[in-house]
Each structure stands twice: as structure tokens, then as C-alpha cells.
Amino acid sequence: MHLTTSTVGRKVLMAVTGLLLVGFIIVHLLGNLSIFAGTEAINIYAEKLHSLGPVVWIFRAVMLALFAVHITFGIQLSMENSTASPEAYAIKKRQITTFSAESMIYTGVILLVFVVYHLLHFTMHVVHTDATDAINTLVNGRPDVYSMVKLSFEKAFVSLVYIAAMFALFFHLGHGLSSFVQTLGFNNGPSQSKVIAVGKLVAVVFLIGYAMIPFVFLVGIK
């Protein structure tokens, strides 16, 4: 299969899975932002999600597959690339590439670890149980997601981990977003610098959007 063995095929897979994952984080972010619409909103949102039943599981399976593909090929390609350039220059000056681009594999691994942690935390409620226990309390007949989030993020450690992870996401997307445009072949030359700028802007939006939530609880604005 050329798609999974060739250099471009795998690059396309990285781009497409990456793009779908970005689709997911857009939806996820929109859902999360409901926390600013009062204590009820996010509880309603969470209940709605859980009521979907099998759809949730299908969705989770798809997400898992996307992650698996993205991570497997990401690691495989990185390993190939480091084999291809075994000896370092005594002096090497970076001319145009960015920290974002050079740290993709590291920010990727950080995000992987974070996602596991995040699932253990808010989905499976295995860590920080003192905070996640709030979910077992019903408010207006719904599980109290809001309190779970609030109690979690009031812990400085948890908030800082989440915020740090969002910086990793920011750097990952800082290269990833414009990169998928190039990989899928949409670059006519003049468009390149604009695409890169838009990519970075969107990465900033994600950073602010996601990091704002732990931040507001941490500093006690909410």
C-alpha cells in the first residue's frame, strides 16, 4: 500500500489525521467554552453527549484510530528522518524553520501523555478523585460537571499541567496547521506566507481558548 509506505502517502496520512484531530479539538473547545455560559450549560452539554450512547463509542473508536495512525507514523517518520541525518554539523544555523517545526515529535509526545492524563482525569475519574467525585452529585438531575472542573482547576498543579499542555498544543499546531495545507498541495508560492500566518493565528486562538479555562479557575476569576 503506497499510502502507508511511501514518503508522500504517510505525509498525507499525517496531514489528514491531523486535520481530523483539529476538527475534534474545535468541537471540544466549543463544548468547553460552555463553561462560561453559567454552571448549568456545561452540565447540559455533558448530559447531551452521554445520551448519545453508542454514537459516543463509535466516535471514541474513530478518535482512537486517528490518534493511532497519527502517532504511529509520526514516530516512524521521525525515526527515519533522524537516521537520514546521522551526523550533526559543528555549526548549524536555522534559516527559516521554527521551534514549532523542529519540536513536532516532542510536542507530539507531550500531547500524547497529556491526553492519557486528561482521560484518566475527566473521563475515567481515576486521578484527582477528590475533585472528580463531584460528578456523582446531581444538580437539577444532571451530573455536576461544572464543579468537577472547578475543583480540579483550583488546584495549581492541575491547572499548570493543563496550561503547559496547551502550550505544547500551540507549538504543535503552529507548524501542523500550515503544514497540512502544504502537504495536501495547496501552495501556489505567494500563498505560503499567508497560510503560515493564518496557521499560527489559529494556533493562538486554540491556546487562548483552551488555556483560559484552567486559568480563570486558577486565579479565581470564576
Binding site: L77, E80, R94, T97, A101, S178, Q182
Partner: peptide, 10 residues
């Protein structure tokens, strides 16, 4: 033995 392109543009 060349590596893969990861869009560094160097």
C-alpha cells in the same frame, strides 16, 4: 537514504 519532508522549508 534521504529523509522525509516535514515542511521546514530550509
Amino acid at each position: 537514504g534521504f529523509g522525509n519532508c516535514t515542511n521546514h522549508y530550509e
